[in-house]
Every structure is written in C-alpha cells, then in structure tokens.
Write a protein that binds this DNA or RNA. Structure first.
Length: 262
DNA sequence: AGTACCACCTGACGGC
DNA sequence: TGCCGTCAGGTGGTAC
C-alpha cells in the first residue's frame, strides 16, 4: 500500500500513538528488514529513549529520537504499522516490535520484507544522499515545471522516478494521469504549459484527497480511477472500459478514451 | 538520460 | 484438492 498518502497516514498514526513514551524493548523478528545496522545496534539505539517527533519525505518516514538520531522507516511493497496492546493482536508479518512503557507495542509489519528499518543521523542529509526529489506536496508550480523541463522520458515513469519527485508510485501515478487525461506513455516533452499546470494541480489534489479520505479504494471519490482500477471495469466518466498496459515496467491502468495515446 | 529486465521475498489467485 | 505459473501499490543493479 505504501505510497505518499499511506506514508502520511503512517506519520499521523505514529504521532497520535507512539510519541513521548519510554521505549522499553525492541524485538527484531526478522533481520532482513534492517538496513545498515544489526539487531543489537537497533536495540541500543532505541531502548530507553523516546520518539520525539516525525518527518516524512516521499515514501520515507523519519522518527526523531533526540541527540541527533533518527529511526528511518521505509515500507517497501507490503509494509505497515500497527499499534496494539494484547499479544494476540500482533500482526501476521511483524518484523520489528517496539514495546513501550505503557504496555502497548508498535509493530513494523512487512510480508515481503522489501521494507527497511534503519538508524540515521540526519533526514536532510539522507534525502540528499539518496538524491530524492522534492515531496510533491511541497512543490509550487514553478518548481514543478522546472523539475520536468528537459526530461525526455515517459510521464508515468517520470512521475514514479523518486529522484524527480519523491512519493508517487504505480497506483497514484495511474490516478493522477487519469485525472489529467494523459496516456501513461506520453512523452514529458510533449506537455505544454497548460498540461503541466493541470498535472501539478491534480497531483496535489489526488494526493491530498487520498490522505483525507483514507487510501482504501472504497473510500475514494467515485470520480477516481482507483475504485475501478481493473481491466474491463467501467471508466468513472462513462467513456468505456478500463484497459491495462505496460509502462515503466509496471502494469498501468487507464481509460483509452479519456487518455488517448498521442 | 531512459528503458527493459532481473533480483530481492511471500502469498493470493486462476487454470488445469 | 493440489500443483504451477503469474502477478502484486518498491527499489537497486545491469545491460543496451
């Protein structure tokens, strides 16, 4: 699930459940999700401390520990968080368990283990080192256009390129392109000023609506593609049937009538 | 710079 | 019921 909207919801979830409590124990149930650190280093870094605040950049969540240390969470394809009390509520694929002084636990759950848990010293430095692009909720039109100028690739690949903008993945790129009526393989260079303007506006709107309404397709507006994102489903604008194609190595869903190939 | 393909993992689903 | 291929909302590496 985890693209920018889910990450923002994870951030709010940590903010409302897990801040300012003593971290008593860390249990690493599967070390594959650990980044550059060992289980004992993670324990040493977290136990006896508290989560002070959170930051999000694209699909990365940073949790401040104080003294210049931050917990870094990346959720891969299947990562999520669960805050719970009783052991029988532990999620099925819990990989790291954080237990607080109040008897509650925060689980980093990740079936496929493409996610990462790590300790870093500086979120800004991390973003720079990873060469992550701007978070699309932070960009005004000027910066947005500037970022796309001179690009020669296809629009879906470009939107999903984390070095261009950080946070958009396969699902939300489909939604954004449906809203602006662009075929996923449209070349960026073909977009005129008006199309870029529209793209900027709808990118922000789609992501904000998903954050506000929750990210399950059922909670999204009927005018969105996502509740209809399967081959042969009806286009939300009643312009025919949804089709799938390949773009940027992923499956892209689109309406061939609303989003003609140009 | 951009694209295609593979790998990393586990599990769900459809076809036979 | 069981086996098998395919596919899944991410990312990093490789080859072209």
């Amino acid at each position: 699930m985890p693209e920018l909207p889910e990450l923002e919801i994870f951030k709010q979830y940590v903010d409302s459940t897990s801040l300012h409590q003593n971290i008593e124990t860390i249990e690493v149930k599967n070390g594959k999700v650990l980044g550059g650190i060992s289980a004992s280093e993670l324990k040493r870094g977290l136990e006896g401390r508290r989560f002070e605040s959170t930051r999000r950049h694209g699909k990365h969540l940073f949790v401040e520990l104080g003294d210049g240390e931050w917990l870094l969470l990346h959720f891969g394809m299947t990562g999520s968080l669960k805050y719970y009390k009783d052991a029988d509520e532990e999620p099925t694929h819990a990989r790291v368990l954080i237990s607080f002084g109040n008897g509650y636990h925060l689980a980093f759950d990740d079936q496929r283990m493409f996610g990462k848990v790590d300790l870093i010293e500086d979120p800004d430095g991390y973003v720079e080192k990873q060469q992550l692009g701007l978070d699309p909720l932070d960009v005004d039109f000027t910066a947005f256009r500037q970022r796309l100028e001179g690009r020669r690739g296809e629009i879906k690949a470009t939107l999903m390129n984390q070095r261009v903008f950080a946070g958009i993945g396969n699902i939300y790129s489909d939604e954004i392109l449906f809203q602006v009526r662009l075929h996923p393989r449209t070349t960026v260079g073909r977009l005129d000023e008006g199309a870029l303007h529209d793209l900027h506006e709808q990118t922000g709107r789609v992501l904000r609506v998903a954050i506000e309404r929750g990210t399950s397709p059922g909670g999204l507006p009927e005018s969105f593609l996502l509740p209809h994102r399967q081959e042969g489903a009806d286009c939300p604008r009643n312009n025919g049937k949804i089709q799938k194609t390949k773009a940027a190595g992923r499956t892209a869903y689109y309406c061939p009538t609303c989003q003609p190939r140009i």
